[in-house]
Amino acid sequence: MELMTRKEVWNITYNHALGKTASEFFTQIKESARILGRRCPSDGRVLVPPRAFSDESLEATDEWVEVGPGGRIEAFTITYEPFQNLPEPPYAFGYVLLDGASTAIGGYFKGIDLSDPARAAEKLVVGTRVKTCFAEEKDRIGDVLDFWFEVQD
């Protein structure tokens, strides 16, 4: 007897409601290439990406604040290993604290030669200044991948 295996694939579709706050955020990205956060009235922190409430104060946020386009790298990694349903490596991504924001937002880092890991990592160290770059208006769909970050010269 041979030990058998069976291949099974899960494939289910979802339509996730984004809510007003995220809808406004993505509309501003798509139409105006602007990144907005929401301010928490109790501690003044500006949440980026915007949330309707703060999970720390548990208060509803009440004010839109435009942030960036400049910012500082808070974390990065460079992926060299291929994973199913993720992009072909290598690619760099991570989190940026945009000017005026209290929390960091994720995005790709582009414009860096990634062939030498150690040298590429040096260009992206925590604290490095970056600027937000947006796709052409016709290519923006209202998603976090409509923008990315490039190191400022």
């Binding site: 996730h16 409601a17 984004l18 809510g19 007003k20 995220a22 949330r51 309707a52 409430f53 548990l58």
Partner: peptide, 16 residues
């Protein structure tokens, strides 16, 4: 019907 709110927003409301 359609909620107009994200799941996280609905959770926040009901817990509060």
């Amino acid at each position: 019907n359609s909620t107009g709110k994200s799941l996280e927003e609905l959770l926040y409301d009901v817990a509060q």
